[in-house]
Simulated scan of single mutants.
Amino acid sequence: MSEHLHLTPHSRRYLRAIQHSLDALNPWSETLVLPLPGSPRPTGDIIVFTGSFNPPTLAHLAMLKQAYSYTRSHAPMHLYAAMSKQTVDKENISRPLFLDRLALLDRLMKRFSGSGILLFNRGLYVEQARAIRQSFPRVHNIYFLMGFDKIVQILDPHYYTDRDAALQELFALAKLLVAPRGEDGPEALQALLQQEENTRFVRYIEPLPLSNVYREISATNIRNQDAGYTQAIPHEVWRFMWRTRAYAPPLHTTNGGTIDVYAKRVRELTRLLGTPPS
């Protein structure tokens, strides 16, 4: 590991631009969405895949590939990954930095021509849809991409005071693309949508098939670096984890001390960017 973090002038400008956008995302202000610097401004029909991407996995990448194929067969349509400063039902993430996760996700999204990344200050889909409608009036249809667990949560009445009213508000703004994993995934989704209380919303929810091979991939197992975790991540993610040790404990030195490699990275980024990174 090198003693200092070396960034080209272009990389510094790029990271500063991302950090500037992150600084503008106050979760307590009005709903806000910003394209990541360098991402195209949303127009027409768009698919939005919101997640914490901690870290991006091959399952995330497979869902993005399926969604990208969907956009190609429904052109003109564009694909966006998205992250929010306020994520529903997620732990408070202190490392890796939001900045690092965004830069890594941006690298992966370069695989999909014409795609981009959106940044939100709110975590609820209805708030994100509202922000898109307010900020990008040339957007027509919004499709939120998600896995089966998320659609179960969205349709669960325990999350609402008035579920049907909340869902009506969401579906007035957006539709859902659901990628059910596993051999029984499509049948489970169909059974969920055919429940009496859900049938009125079926026309707003469309399945997006995903291979069974991604069923067992867990971001938690990857963060814990459990056995075989390298088989579940793209090469770019493995390289990031290896170089930064963002998910690894401090290294032990020969004199009995420890070195936190990622903490050193954060200090170096603060020095190079001139501001504490998010």
Rank of each mutant, 00 (worst) to 15 (best):
Y68H: 15
S69H: 14
S69Q: 15
Y70D: 07
Y70F: 14
Y70P: 03
T71L: 08
T71Y: 05
T71Q: 06
T71W: 03
R72Y: 07
R72S: 13
R72H: 12
R72L: 15
S73C: 12
S73M: 13
S73V: 13
S73W: 09
H74Q: 14
H74G: 13
H74L: 10
A75E: 13
P76T: 12
M77G: 11
M77N: 09
M77L: 15
M77E: 13
L79V: 04
L79H: 04
Y80S: 06
A81M: 06
A81R: 02
A82P: 06
A82V: 06
M83K: 03
M83E: 04
S84R: 00
S84L: 02
S84G: 11
K85R: 15
Q86V: 02
T87R: 05
V88S: 00
V88L: 05
V88K: 01
V88T: 04
V88D: 04
K90V: 03
K90P: 05
K90E: 08
E91H: 07
N92G: 07
N92H: 15
I93A: 12
S94N: 13
S94T: 15
R95I: 10
R95S: 14
R95F: 14
R95M: 12
P96C: 13
P96K: 08
L97D: 08
L97E: 08
F98S: 11
F98T: 12
F98M: 15
L99A: 11
L99G: 08
L99I: 12
D100W: 07
D100M: 09
D100N: 11
D100E: 11
R101P: 09
L102M: 10
L102R: 03
A103H: 11
D106W: 05
D106A: 09
R107D: 09
R107W: 05
R107K: 11
R107F: 04
L108D: 07
L108Y: 07
L108P: 05
L108R: 06
M109W: 00
M109I: 01
K110S: 10
K110Q: 12
R111K: 10
R111C: 05
F112H: 02
F112R: 00
F112G: 00
F112V: 03
S113V: 08
S113R: 13
S113Q: 13
G114Y: 09
G114R: 10
S115R: 00
S115L: 01
G116K: 00
I117Q: 00
L118E: 03
L118G: 01
L118C: 04
L119K: 05
L119F: 05
L119E: 04
F120L: 05
F120M: 06
